[in-house]
Design a protein around this nucleic acid. Structure first.
Lengths: 207, 207
DNA sequence: ACCTGAACACCGTTCAAGT
DNA sequence: ACCTGAACACCGTTCAAGT
């Protein structure tokens, strides 16, 4: 019914003021997210940007699109890191590659308050969300995980998406405390020891 | 300033209609929680109970007090189970006692949608909430956990509250999916293998 | 085309009036 | 004393009017 869309809908718009508004909104959102988490009120973001709320909604129809825009190319960077670590597996070991990447992922989750809640639906299978900017990252993680399984570094009966959901959840568990990051790290280390542990070894510490 | 409170503020009130309203509210809340989770709208609960919203707020000033009242003596039951399992450690092993109790705890978390979110602040250290009805349960869990550590069944560098928060988080991670319970079970099993794993053994599955 | 912000919709909580 | 539910407060979203 309507005229054909532009081939590159995410390209920079023609009008300078539109680009400027978008830039201001992203800066304002980043600042608001940093102070109040990803659930910062729309009115506050618009006020900081010096625009009306309607402009915010015009540029970013829903919360997820705003969060993703603020996140920018972080998911691509995480994907690149995963691919880089996959190549380095032979040198430093598949398990080390896994933990190194999950540290990066955990760091990403700590960027703003509320990130864990925001990402939860995306990490479900089947995904409730349309997978946001992170499809490629998830695929790269799957490759890294499969490599570790093939190398015998982690148990066979675990699924890659499970671990991501768990790491996300463990971050959620500790959010809002002064020592959130280190507590999340401790819980993640525990989980990773479980992932590393092979049932077939038949070795158990206790009775 | 005011007249002294009754010695037993939680005792059944004198008036029959007040008791009846309380009963109705609890029944309505349980039904609403079952269908819509612990965040079910106050108006719906009051409507189901056949009372005004004001009556709901009079009986239960905040959401937590309503949830706790609906939960009833479940935390006491969980405490009793923990104590019972502590006694049975000699027969079936401290680790088995731990997993058995955590299964019960996980089952409790699955009672209503939103339970994990509701319990998160309570499980933080220092607790953000005034600890609700579950102080005694948490203390019993600490005993069970310490026993397992003393028996060498689990690693020394883990803290009891950590595990509870983690189990709660893993439930949160899977909520809303058709297979939520079994997926949470799988993630919990992974975590528990990590808990069981002893660093001092020096045995690792991978490289 | 795009922007503005008042108006609208929604929902949790309170409290003046009633019993 | 307790109950009722309209009124209030708050907040996210929309859209008629303006540029």
């Amino acid at each position: 019914m309507s005229a054909p869309q532009r081939a590159t809908p995410d390209a920079a718009p023609a009008r300078a003021d539109v680009r400027r508004n978008r830039r201001r909104l992203l800066d304002a959102a980043r600042a608001a997210f940093t102070e109040g988490g990803v659930d910062a009120p729309p009115a506050e973001i618009a006020r900081r940007a010096g625009v009306g709320v309607g402009t915010l909604y015009r540029h970013f129809p829903d919360r997820a699109s705003l969060v993703d825009a603020v996140l920018g190319d972080r998911y691509d960077t995480l994907r690149d890191e995963a691919d880089r670590l996959l190549d380095a597996c032979a040198a430093s070991g598949a398990f080390a590659a896994l933990t190194t990447w999950l540290d990066l992922f955990a760091c990403h989750l700590a960027l703003f308050q509320g990130m864990a809640d925001s990402l939860r639906p995306t990490l479900l299978e089947p995904a409730v969300d349309a997978a946001r900017g992170c499809d490629a990252m998830l695929a790269a993680w799957d490759r890294l995980f499969t490599r570790a399984q093939q190398a015998g570094a982690i148990r066979r009966d675990a699924r890659p998406r499970d671990i991501l959901r768990a790491v996300n959840a463990l971050r959620w568990a500790t959010q809002g405390t002064p020592t959130a990051t280190q507590e999340a790290d401790r819980l993640r280390a525990l989980l990773l020891d479980g992932l590393r542990y092979q049932h077939t070894d038949g070795i158990r510490a206790g009775r």
